[in-house]
Amino acid sequence: MDQFDVKLLQALQSNGRLSNFELADVVGLSSSQCSRRRAALEDAGTIASYHAHLDRGALGLGIVVFVQVTLATHSPDNSRRFSKLIESLEEVQEAYALTGEADYLIKITITDLKALSRLLNDVFLPHDSVAHVRSSIVLDCLKQTARLPLGHLIPVETSKPRPAMNSRARGEGRRRPRKA
């Protein structure tokens, strides 16, 4: 991956709808080169997908909740049952297996508190894989992004050593006039 690929990825993270012509203008390559690079990044799986980012508030999904889940038992079978539960719930936006006190952290987007209560009391708590649930309702979102940090992919420019100067360029061999 070179600097052009990184520029291409940064541009697509900002606007995934850029045409190859527009992308070429941003990246500084021809549109055919951008097209080939984009296709190669897609084939390699670096660009996983393109999607529309929907506004949850405009769709009536006003509540975001983080739920910590502790499993009833720690076994592969229990983990699989819990994973199947998570996969079946459209309200679950993200789910992470954790180290520490809780076994999982689940991000849920939902319409209102009544719907949250139903989800927790009627789905999570009665599930045979779940022992404990603790929820935290988001009051305000300080930052939300799907952009990945790419700075580590940009090579750091090092200062180039100056070329060696010959004695004449350094001023050696010339006599300076004496001051009287």
Rank of each mutant, 00 (worst) to 15 (best):
L59R: 14
F124I: 08
F4E: 07
G28V: 01
H74N: 07
T111D: 12
E22V: 05
F66E: 03
T46H: 05
Y96D: 01
K179P: 01
D103T: 01
S75D: 13
R80K: 14
N78W: 00
K143R: 14
V123A: 00
F124P: 04
R36A: 11
Q93N: 09
G16R: 05
E91N: 01
L105H: 01
R147S: 13
F124K: 05
Q68H: 04
D140C: 08
L150G: 07
V138C: 15
Q3S: 09
N121S: 15
A39Q: 14
V123P: 00
G171R: 12
L98T: 15
A180E: 09
L85A: 10
V27K: 08
L120I: 15
C141K: 11
Q93Y: 02
D25H: 13
F4A: 10
E22I: 04
R134G: 02
A11S: 08
A97V: 03
A39M: 13
S136V: 04
G100H: 00
F66H: 07
H51G: 09
Q3P: 01
R176F: 14
K160Y: 00
N15Y: 02
G62W: 02
V133Y: 01
L9G: 11
A180D: 10
V130A: 10
E172G: 04
N166I: 11
R17T: 15
V133E: 03
V6N: 04
E157C: 03
L120Q: 09
I47L: 04
R162V: 01
F124V: 05
E87I: 08
D128E: 15
G28A: 02
T109D: 04
R176G: 08
G62K: 12
S167H: 13
Q33T: 11
R170L: 15
P163G: 03
G16L: 13
L139D: 07
R56W: 04
L61K: 13
L8C: 11
A40T: 12
P163Y: 00
A52C: 07
V67R: 00
S14P: 01
F82L: 09
E42I: 15
D128S: 14
G100V: 01
N15G: 02
R162T: 01
D122F: 06
H127E: 11
L61Q: 14
R36E: 08
D122A: 09
R147A: 15
L54K: 05
Q93H: 03
R147L: 08
E22F: 03
Q10K: 14
I108N: 04
T99H: 14
Q13H: 07
Q10M: 09
H132I: 03
V69Y: 06
A52F: 11
G16F: 06
I86W: 04
K114W: 00
V26A: 06
K114Y: 00
A39F: 12
S79N: 04
I108H: 08
A102I: 05
L59H: 13
M165W: 04
A39G: 06
D122W: 04
G60Q: 07
R37L: 12
S79M: 12
V65M: 02
C34P: 08
T145F: 11
E22Y: 09
R17E: 12
I108G: 05
Y50S: 07
R17S: 15
R174T: 13
R80H: 03
M165Q: 14
R170A: 10
A102P: 05
R174F: 12
S129L: 06
I106A: 02
A11N: 06
A52I: 09
R56E: 08
S79H: 06
A95C: 13
Y104I: 00
A102V: 06
V26T: 08
L61C: 12
E94W: 02
